[in-house]
């Protein structure tokens, strides 16, 4: 029952359109398309994301939605398209519906996570091997990479880990949002994303070069260098704040990199 808006047609009762939350934004004249959510057919406006289309169809998310911005990993969705044997994967909040897609959300997939205290761990591949011996069950089928909605080379980071290269694994897995799709498809039953997270934690804690300027700034903050200034801002009148804001120094828009410095610099 797709309906088409036409300028001659009398306007239907105007829908409330809001830009945030779980309400769908329907563009003027949006047509609807059929999609199959867990096997049942629904007519939903095209141009919606899977997440909004599901909400339009009456689903309410208790789990399976978080950031709505493609970063929390709560909404991975599996779908197929007519006439295509391939499985497709996407984030419900980022993937636009297509006609006749069959879809189901998989908000959580069981995957064992080893218990450890990162502070106690040397950045040593042997420790990763002993916490996650499943690593060596990988057969390089690459199903994980095909399943990753973030386009992460999952086999790539698993291989890097088997090769003992923690830094490379951390780098390759950087875009991972822990959605679990790789684990759902793994022939070796690996919890890939948990292993990669351990690698990134080791990398961040012990391998990555420290930013010296950051340490210096933390030291300054702790020594109270900014206390006075912050207190004066907190107690400043609204008018004075506004005046300061308007008069603030600004870097000229097209200033070449590194050429501009503010005149007022005691806190730099």
């Amino acid at each position: 029952m797709s309906h088409h808006h036409d300028s001659k047609e009398p306007k239907q009762k105007k829908k409330v359109q809001v830009a945030t939350g779980d309400r769908a934004i329907l563009p003027e004249g949006a047509t609807t398309i059929p999609v199959y959510i867990m096997g049942k057919r629904y007519e939903v406006p095209e141009t919606l994301t899977i997440m909004k289309a599901m909400e339009y169809a009456g689903f309410k998310f208790l789990r399976g939605a978080g950031c709505r911005g493609g970063i929390c990993g709560a909404c991975p969705t599996v779908y197929r398209k007519p006439g295509d044997y391939k499985l497709h994967f996407g984030l419900a909040c980022q993937t636009v519906v297509e006609p006749d897609m069959y879809l189901a959300q998989i908000p959580f997939y069981p995957a064992n996570r080893a218990a450890y205290k990162i502070e106690d761990l040397e950045p040593n591949p042997e420790i990763i091997f002993s916490l996650y011996p499943e690593l060596f069950r990988c057969v390089a089928c690459n199903n994980c990479t095909k399943a990753c909605p973030m386009g992460v080379d999952v086999l790539g980071y698993i291989s890097a880990l088997k090769q003992g290269d923690i830094a490379r694994a951390a780098e390759i897995s950087f875009d991972c949002i822990q959605c679990g799709m790789c684990a759902s498809r793994c022939m070796g039953e690996l919890p890939q994303y948990h292993i990669a997270q351990l690698a990134r934690r080791m990398y961040g804690r012990a391998i990555m070069p420290r930013a010296r300027h950051l340490a210096k700034r933390v030291e300054e903050i702790e020594s109270g260098k900014y206390d006075e200034m912050l207190k004066s801002l907190q107690t400043m009148s609204h008018g004075e704040l506004e005046k300061r804001y308007k008069e603030r120094e600004r870097e000229p828009d097209m200033a070449p990199n590194g050429t501009w410095l503010p005149a007022n610099d005691p806190y730099l």
């Binding site: 390089a140 086999l155 790539g156 291989s159 088997k162 090769q163």
Partner: peptide, 10 residues
């Protein structure tokens, strides 16, 4: 030249 990408051969 080492392969830039490779996996364990099994």
């Amino acid at each position: 030249e080492e392969l830039t990408r490779w996996n364990c051969c099994g």
